[in-house]
Design a protein around this nucleic acid. Structure first.
Length: 838
RNA sequence: GCCCGGAUGGCGAAACCGGUAAACGCGGCGCCCUUAAAAGGCGCUGCCCCGAAAGGGGCUUGCGGGUUCGAGCCCCGCUCCGGGCACCA
């Protein structure tokens, strides 16, 4: 009998799928478009092509492909494309080290990914393939940038960035490790540079509200995004500094504690600081403090156990609720980026204000009594952040603080000193990078069009797109984008006035590229538009998105933002890009995250070479629930390989039998092995279908097919009775192939063809026969006082009385009744009897 | 500190609506095939106790309570592990 040789089988089917373009689908209006089927967009996150694919890729695409195959055979027209997120730092860092142009290393890696995806037999519509680094793609990334720019959603502003003084370069956040430059170890500084931003904060509210529009996303991903957006409700209250005649609004979530404010703090970056202290005694100390803070990294400043620091300003503001003068400070625990960059400090009810007050000997004033505390009225138990009755708050005393909250805000509103306010933790998205390997930002600076010595920012005209990335020699950053060195490229003419102008030399964050690729797939060869509305209207949203949790926040939120902004611009008709999201867990080795330095990496290529793609794919799906992680073991791989070999040999044996004796037309009588095997096959169909539809329980789908194959072995030769016979065996084998096909497509296709002469992917997913699922008898569980005492084969149709009689008649049960009184009888028909005795 | 997950045999796990705990796989043990090995096939395999055996009994889903005829699953209180956010007013 021939052995299972995956290589031959796999190559054969890969050739068929490539030559026949089996997985390509047409768009509406194109030849071959099938308008009879509902659509399903199945998408895995596109890979970042660096080096070779790793097991994370294998898992992601194995899971996605199983879904795609299942949906096709359930009658959907499935679109399942692939592309490469090809811009980014690794290729550029490699270029700095080796001098190899990023494009070359990237193309090499893409070729390797493409080849391996084909070797894995992933059912991809290759006609839609894209790379985000190609001018054909980034031309439209630039177009989207300009669309956002025209809407005021892209803007340029000074911002603090990470700066390494030794390398004289700007660093990405990921290149700052523990506040130091990852390359030279120098402490990183904050520098103010003009940067490009996307106004994602305008969408904060919708990004929160539209979680309701999603069909199925993992709860923890939604929670992570919620926390990231960080919506806080409160009030904006204005404190006035009479000495300099300035109003200072603050944001607070606790207007109920206003009477407890005993001091006031500004962030070191606060723009009015200068005016407050200019020419005063405090000026020198304040300036020194602000300078010191400015030199610190965000990491240092945010350190957990850091002592509170600050400097008094020698000024005071008036508390609008009681007219009290409270002293002003500057302190680095107040952040300019959040709220108004100023706070009212209530040390009795806020931990941070409390610490500051302790350090600087400032008074506490309790304005909310603790409810159950012994020392509810004195300084013990402070800071107290909880609820309770108001005290020391004038006419609000005695009221609950929640009630007082509303009344105080209403009062401030009437007085014109405050109003309800909402704040978000979310910041605008900084998209410019002083880097080479990215899509150039398509604007120019024109002095002639500008005013007041400020050059005008002029968008590049649509017909001049793409702004192509020029070839350069030196990729090392010099404190400006490496593109700045390409002087011929930088010097251009102004699209508006035709005069001399300079190109923007920053490139875009790679997250911009990946925020819209799923739309481009729908019309990836379109040279006249980013996409055709007919295509996007038909295919969007993505019905099932699959990828790692590491993208739970950034990528997924950026893509959601892009979708909403593009919908607002009239380019899309969906508000959410991904209706269903599946976040896969990480595969470890020896219990640890895989890394080259630990030497515990698993190369999918090696396993595909040794065991075949079907084994590797089925194994990652069988390891456990795919949303959880799993530890890769070679024994586990062997086990799956053994199972697939068993299916293969079963097929070979059934074929031989036919050659020898011809199919026996058999009846599969009740109680016989043929009937048993057919019933098992239909059970497996029902189980596999249910588990597929329930979500991603692939491990149990595969287990069901294993059970079917085991039963086929057990029954085929009749070791313990009659053999099952040809027809039942053939059906069991065919069914096993059909059900395993989404995981092991090559073997599934091969075995199915040998059994039926047909192509499994052209056959609908099998339906279980209810007549064969039903059984004449059931195992009745008999409990006494909830403990299992006997199992009895009972007629499936038996009524409650009959079951009770059977149960009471059981000898084993009798032994436990033993003179006791039956006080209650519980019957679950077809399942269980519980006798309660006393 | 706040917010999410999770904890079941030697291991990965299963258990759908509160109704047989441990399906399936790994590992281990035994047998068959073989001159032998590999490969393959067949069986056993949660823990403890009684028994020569057949068989019987008890215990068991991180810990402690509760609800229920019945809890891995529901409720209350903890412990440990993993992840996210974190001076966000």
């Amino acid at each position: 009998m021939s052995a299972y040789e995956p290589k031959q089988i796999e190559q054969r089917w890969q050739r068929v799928w490539a030559e026949e373009k089996t997985w390509e689908v047409a768009n509406p209006g194109q030849a071959g478009f099938d308008d009879t089927k509902p659509k399903s967009y199945v998408l895995e996150m596109l890979p970042y092509p660096s080096g070779e694919p790793h097991v994370g890729h294998l898992k992601c695409y194995a899971v996605g492909d199983a879904i795609a195959h299942f949906r096709r055979r359930r009658g959907f027209q499935v679109i399942h494309p692939m592309g490469y997120d090809a811009f980014g730092l690794p290729a550029e860092n490699n270029a700095i080290k080796t001098g190899e142009p990023p494009r070359e290393a990237t193309e090499r890696s893409i070729a390797s990914f493409r080849r391996q995806f084909r070797e894995w037999g992933i059912s991809i519509d290759w006609s839609r393939e894209l790379g985000t680094h190609t001018p054909e793609y980034y031309r439209w990334t630039q177009w989207i940038f300009l669309q956002l720019f025209e809407q005021g959603l892209a803007y340029r502003e000074e911002a603090a960035v990470n700066w390494c003084p030794k390398d004289a370069t700007v660093l990405a956040n990921e290149q700052v490790v523990d506040g130091r430059c990852e390359r030279c170890g120098t402490v990183v500084e904050q520098r103010k540079l003009a940067q490009w931003f996307f106004r994602i904060t305008d969408y904060a509210e919708r990004l929160l509200a539209d979680f309701d529009l999603l069909e199925s996303w993992p709860e923890h991903v939604i929670t992570m995004q919620r926390n990231w957006i960080g919506r806080s409700e409160g009030a904006e209250v204005t404190f006035r500094c009479e000495e300099v005649g300035l109003d200072f609004p603050v944001f607070t979530t606790r207007p109920d504690t206003l009477f407890g404010a005993t001091f006031f703090v500004l962030a070191p970056e606060h723009p009015e600081l200068e005016r407050l202290v200019a020419g005063t005694e405090a000026e020198a100390a304040v300036r020194e403090y602000v300078d010191r803070v400015g030199r610190e990294s965000a990491e240092e400043r945010g350190a957990e156990d850091r002592e509170k620091t600050g400097v008094p300003l020698g000024r005071s503001v008036v508390n609008p609720v009681n007219g009290e003068q409270i002293p002003m400070y500057v302190a680095d625990y107040v952040l300019m980026e959040y709220g108004t960059g100023a706070i009212m400090a209530v040390p009795a009810h806020d931990g941070r204000d409390y610490e500051f007050a302790q350090t600087f000997g400032l008074p506490l004033r309790r304005v909310i009594e603790g409810v159950d505390e012994e020392a509810a009225r004195d300084e013990q138990g402070l800071p107290y952040p909880g609820d309770g009755p108001m005290t020391g708050s004038g006419r609000f005393d005695g009221k609950g603080n929640r009630e007082a909250y509303e009344e105080i805000v209403a009062w401030l509103r009437e007085e014109g000193r405050g109003e309800d306010a909402v704040n978000y933790r979310l910041r605008d998205w900084l998209v410019s990078r002083q880097r080479y390997w990215g899509a150039p930002i398509p604007v120019v600076y024109c002095d002639a069009c500008g005013e007041d010595d400020e050059p005008a920012i002029v968008p590049v005209a649509d017909e001049q797109l793409p702004v192509e990335l020029p070839a350069i020699d030196d990729y090392a950053p010099q404190g400006r984008s490496p593109l700045a060195a390409a002087e011929d490229w930088v010097a251009t003419s102004c699209p508006r006035c035709g005069g001399p102008a300079r190109r923007e030399t920053d490139t875009m964050d790679t997250f911009v590229d990946s925020s819209w690729y799923f739309i481009r797939y729908l019309d990836s060869k379109n040279e006249n538009a980013a996409w055709d509305r007919r295509a996007s209207d038909h295919w969007l949203p993505v019905d099932q998105y699959i990828g790692g949790v590491e993208h739970a926040i950034l990528h997924l939120m950026y893509a959601r933002f892009f979708t909403k902004a593009l919908a607002d611009l009239g380019h899309l008709d969906v508000q959410e890009p991904f209706a269903n999201l599946f976040a896969q867990g990480m595969i470890t080795r020896d219990g640890a995250k895989m890394s080259k330095s630990k030497g515990n990496t698993v190369s999918p290529g090696e396993y595909v070479e040794r065991y075949g793609a079907d084994t590797a794919r089925t194994y990652v799906c069988f390891m456990g629930p795919p949303e959880r992680g799993g530890d890769w073991t070679d024994e586990g791989v062997e086990g799956v390989n053994r199972f697939l070999s068993r299916l293969w040999r079963l097929c070979a044996e059934v074929e031989e039998r036919t050659a020898a004796g011809g199919p026996d037309a058999e009846a599969a009588p009740e109680g016989g092995p043929a009937r048993e095997l057919l019933a098992k096959a239909h059970w497996a169909i029902a189980k596999a279908t249910a588990d597929f539809e329930r979500g991603f329980q692939f491990n149990t789908v595969i287990a069901a097919v294993m059970e079917l194959v085991n039963d086929a072995y057990r029954l085929k030769d009749g070791l313990y009775g009659e053999p099952a016979g040809e027809a039942a065996l053939r059906f069991a084998t065919e069914t096993g192939a059909s059900l395993i096909f989404p995981f092991a497509p090559h073997l599934g296709a091969e075995v199915f063809e040998r059994m039926t002469g047909e192509r499994v992917w052209e056959r609908p997913w099998p339906e279980p026969d209810p007549a064969l699922l039903a059984s004449d008898t059931v195992t009745l569980i008999v409990q006494v006082n909830g403990k299992l005492r006997d199992r009895i084969e009972a007629p499936a149709e038996a009524g409650e009385e009959e079951l009770l009689e059977l149960a009471r008649a059981s000898e084993k049960v009798q032994g436990h009744l033993d003179g006791k009184q039956i006080v209650k009888e519980i019957v679950v028909p077809g399942k269980l009897v519980n006798l309660v005795v006393r």
